[in-house]
Every structure is written in structure tokens, then in C-alpha cells.
Design a binder for these strands. Structure first.
Lengths: 153, 153
DNA sequence: TAAGATTGATAGTTCAATCTTG
DNA sequence: CAAGATTGAACTATCAATCTTA
């Protein structure tokens, strides 16, 4: 049982700052989306669907895009189907699969929410980044994702 | 109605990277804490309590430390009291207030969880940062918090 | 057996409403 | 009236168990 390798002051400061920043960003984003009638979870799924060919994706692939497990995805899709944002139908290639299609209502909702969402992302994050900070943060994120064996696309 | 100021490729990359990184960190932290029998919410509150004089804080002050609203705090404290991690008693100075005191069980739990928690924070975040990156990120977080009218301490 | 997906139970988060005290 | 705190309802996230098909 080795002595724990506690964080020094500088390390503790950056970690607590980062943790607080994350929370502030989440709140700001959630508030804007709620005004637009969506949850963050809704938006996370609506965006890849709106960018997909024919506005539809297999549930498995959608889950991989957003990094969610099957259970979370299934529960969220059930709620979104009840709200009329998406529609499920069987996958033709693979009888185990489910296709998720954006409805007109879902597309309308994400298009309506997107400009305000970008405003918040800019105001509380992107516009505060210098080019150097931008590069640094992208590189850091790649390292963090690699440490967890994850790659984006 | 001005044309939305969409993110360019570089901006979109840093935002999506950051968003994914945040999720990976959350998951890693949650998993470790669950092994230690705590939720992230438990840990967020147990740490400031364990650092406070006499291991107790007024609910109002605890809420300010972690940046939570009263409702979230109250619900979480109710669950933690049921689990025997904290105990509430009346505030002597101000009859509106509630004092939150760590129990022996709560203190034991946070002390047991802390070394593993630091390991995860190091492995997936702090140890990936150079000193220069550390400074830059701390400064960025301060800007984000300032944009939301928040200061740490 | 493994992959894709769903479901139920439980815990955590948010908003609105309420209650008490300064 | 404002500040501190609690509660109920609705929503979201996670784990374990289950079901179907490759």
C-alpha cells in the first residue's frame, strides 16, 4: 500500500478549475436548450441524426458517435420517440438492428435550437480561447481520450 | 435575425474534443468512486466537509463551495443522511440555517475513496499536462468562470 | 457464444412551489 | 420582501437482467 501521490497546489488548482468550468458550461448549455424545448441528451442525439444521410442512423452507430452505452441510448430514444422527435424501424440488413430516423418535428427542433446553442458555446468557451489555447486543448483532449482507449472518428 | 455565427473546423474540433474529454473523465471518476461505494455527488460534498473545521459546514456555505443550488443540495443531503454519511442539526446563529456535519462513517468513506480518486484524476488528466499546459488551462477556466460571473474562493 | 437492443430498479438533477425566519 | 431550506414531480443516467438474432 504505497503512500497516495496527492496533488500539489498547482495540480489541485488546475483540476478544481477544470471541474468548475465543466459544471458552468453544462449549466449554460442546459439552460439555453431547455428554452428551446430540448434536453442536452436530446440535442446530443439530434445533431448526428441531422447530419446523417437520409436523416437516419442505426442505433449501434449512433451510440458509437456519442459514446453512449446501449441502455442509456435505448431509454433516451424511447423518450424521444414518445415526444415525436425520432421514429424507430427495423434494420433491413440485420434483424438484430434498429434504425433511428429523425422526424420532421425532430429536425425542426434541432434546427431551431442550433443557433442559440452555438451562441452559448461561443460565449462561454470558444470565443474565450486564444489560438494557442485552442491547439493545446485539442491536443490535451486527444491525450485524455487515448488514455481511455478512445479515438474520435 | 442575424445569420448564425457557426463554428469553423478548428473551433468545432476543439469543442467536440472538449465535450468528449469531459464525458470520459466523468465516466472514469464515477467508476472508481462506485467501487469505493460513493457517487460523484457524495464525493463532491464529502471533500469540503472533511476539510472544514470540526468537519462541519452550514448548508448555504457548502452549496457555495460546490456551486449547487439549494434544491439539489437538499435532495443530496437527504440521501446522504439516510446512508449515515452526514448528520443535520440546527444552526445556532441563524434559525433559518442548517449545519451539515460529517459522521465517522462519512469521514471513513471519503478517506478510503480519496487515494483511488487521485489516481484516476492523475492518470486521465493531471499527469497528461505539462506545467505550461497547466497554467494555460487554469487561466482559461478562470475566463470561463468569469464569463458566468463566478469566482473560485 | 457474442452482438444488438430493451426493460426495471435505483440514484441523481432540475424546476416550481412551499415554508420559515431575518 | 429576501434568504435559507425543503419537497414533489418529471427527467436523465447507470447497472443488472433479459430477449432475440448472427
Amino acid at each position: 500500500v504505497a503512500e497516495p501521490n496527492w496533488l500539489d497546489d498547482r495540480e489541485q488548482r488546475v483540476w478544481r478549475s477544470f471541474y468548475a468550468m465543466r459544471r458552468v458550461l453544462d449549466r449554460a448549455i442546459d439552460r439555453q436548450l431547455v428554452e428551446a424545448g430540448l434536453s442536452s441528451a436530446d440535442y446530443d442525439l439530434l445533431v448526428p441524426l441531422s447530419e446523417a444521410p437520409a436523416h437516419e442512423l442505426r442505433a449501434r452507430d449512433l451510440g458509437k458517435r456519442v459514446g453512449w452505452d446501449r441502455s442509456r441510448l435505448s431509454h433516451q430514444l424511447r423518450r424521444m420517440e414518445q415526444r415525436g422527435q425520432i421514429r424507430r424501424h427495423d434494420c433491413e440488413d440485420d434483424a438484430r438492428g434498429t434504425m433511428i430516423a429523425l422526424t420532421g418535428e425532430g429536425l425542426r427542433a434541432v434546427k431551431a435550437a442550433a443557433p442559440g446553442h452555438v451562441d452559448v458555446v461561443r460565449r462561454y468557451f470558444v470565443d474565450l480561447l486564444s489560438p494557442a489555447e485552442c491547439e493545446l486543448l485539442t491536443a490535451l483532449a486527444a491525450k485524455v481520450l487515448a488514455a481511455a482507449d478512445i479515438t474520435l472518428d
